[in-house]
C-alpha cells in the first residue's frame, strides 16, 4: 500500500471507523452479558439466603 497516495486519509478513516465501530459493539455486548450474569448470581444468592 502506498501511504502517500491521493485520498489515503479516506482509506485510513474507513478502516479506523470500521474497527472502532466493531470494537464498540463487542465491548457493549460482552459487558452487558457480564453485568446480567452478575445480577443473576446476586439474585440467586439472595433467594437462597431467604429460602434458607
Amino acid at each position: 500500500m502506498d501511504w502517500n497516495a491521493a485520498h489515503i486519509d479516506f482509506v485510513i478513516a474507513a478502516y479506523a471507523v470500521s474497527f472502532a465501530g466493531l470494537a464498540f459493539l463487542m465491548v457493549f455486548i460482552l459487558l452487558r452479558d457480564r453485568k446480567l450474569k452478575r445480577q443473576i448470581a446476586t439474585l440467586d444468592r439472595e433467594r437462597d439466603r431467604r429460602d434458607g
Binding site: 455486548i29 460482552l30 452479558d33 446480567l36 450474569k37 443473576i40 439474585l43 433467594r47
Partner: peptide, 19 residues
C-alpha cells in the same frame, strides 16, 4: 453472546417477579 444475554435477562425478570 447476545442471545445468552437475552436468556439471562428473561431469567432475571422471572427471579425479580418471584422475589
Amino acid at each position: 453472546v447476545a442471545m445468552r444475554s437475552e436468556i439471562a435477562q428473561r431469567k432475571l425478570r422471572q427471579l425479580r417477579l418471584a422475589g
